[in-house]
Simulated assay, not measured.
Amino acid sequence: MRRRKVKSAVLIGAVAATVAALGSAGAAAPEGRQGAPLPAGAAAPEGRQGASPTVVVDCSGDAQVRPGSYLIACGDGNNGLVSLHWTRWGATSAEARGSNVVNDCLPYCAAGHFHTFPVTVRLDTVRARPGQQSQAYFTVLHLHYTADGPPRTPRDAAYSIVAVKPGVAG
């Protein structure tokens, strides 16, 4: 019995370490409520000096620009993006290459194994951030698996990004 408890503790620690390794997290969900449509002209045109860039919001509600990693599964850390190399970051869309790291959760998530899949990433659909109407943020994250993806996962997947109002736990 003691050996099983130690093994479970080690597995839980491994999952926690993987979540920590993913770094700045993403607040992505299959569907979610987003902020109000951005008022005309509120998104900063590319290259305009002093203009605030469009951001992507992470799991803790922080604004990120060109993050190197992004957590898709905020609740359990079993799905995230790593080694992101941004080829474009504009006012209305952003594009990157990187890897999707996914836990197979077999036979259950704490005992599962993480697998890495190459992806291209696109962020789009800009809205005003709740509680910060002057801040534009991307509300949709698109993944395209450039090779094999996780089992039962479509080659192209989209996730809504939900921005929590500042000061409100999500």
Rank of each mutant, 00 (worst) to 15 (best):
M1A: 15
M1N: 15
R2I: 14
R2T: 11
K5W: 08
K7P: 00
S8A: 15
S8P: 07
S8Q: 15
A9Q: 07
L11E: 04
I12G: 13
I12V: 15
I12Y: 09
A14L: 07
A14Y: 00
V15P: 11
V15E: 14
A16L: 12
T18E: 14
V19K: 12
V19P: 06
V19C: 04
V19R: 12
L22Q: 14
L22E: 09
S24P: 12
S24G: 04
A28G: 13
A28M: 14
A28K: 01
A29P: 09
E31D: 08
G32V: 07
Q34F: 00
G35I: 00
A36P: 06
L38S: 02
A40N: 11
A40C: 01
G41D: 10
A42N: 01
A43H: 08
A44W: 06
P45T: 04
G47S: 05
R48Q: 14
R48W: 09
Q49V: 09
Q49W: 10
G50N: 05
A51I: 01
V56M: 00
V57M: 09
V57D: 02
V57I: 13
D58S: 04
D62K: 08
A63W: 00
Q64N: 09
V65Q: 11
R66C: 00
P67G: 13
P67Y: 14
S69P: 03
Y70D: 05
Y70E: 10
L71D: 01
A73V: 12
G75E: 14
G75P: 00
G75M: 12
G77K: 10
N78V: 15
N79Y: 10
G80N: 08
L84N: 01
L84G: 13
L84A: 07
W86A: 03
T87H: 15
R88E: 05
A91C: 11
T92R: 13
T92H: 14
A94G: 10
A94P: 09
A94T: 03
E95L: 07
G98F: 12
G98A: 05
S99I: 07
N100S: 10
V101M: 03
N103T: 08
D104C: 06
C105M: 02
L106D: 11
L106F: 13
L106T: 13
L106G: 02
Y108F: 10
C109A: 14
C109R: 11
C109Q: 01
G112L: 06
H113V: 12
F114N: 04
F114R: 09
F114S: 09
F114K: 04
H115Q: 07
P118F: 04
V119S: 01
T120F: 07
T120Q: 04
L123C: 07
L123A: 11
L123S: 04
L123D: 04
V126I: 06
A128E: 04
P130L: 03
G131R: 00
Q132K: 14
Q132G: 06
Q132F: 03
Q133Y: 14
F138L: 03
F138P: 01
T139D: 02
T139K: 02
V140K: 13
L141Y: 03
H144E: 02
Y145C: 11
T146F: 02
A147N: 02
P150I: 08
P150M: 11
P151L: 08
R152D: 15
T153I: 05
P154K: 15
P154S: 08
P154C: 04
P154T: 12
R155F: 03
D156L: 07
A157C: 00
A157N: 01
A158E: 14
I161C: 08
V162F: 00
A163I: 06
A163D: 10
P166C: 13
G167P: 09
G167I: 11
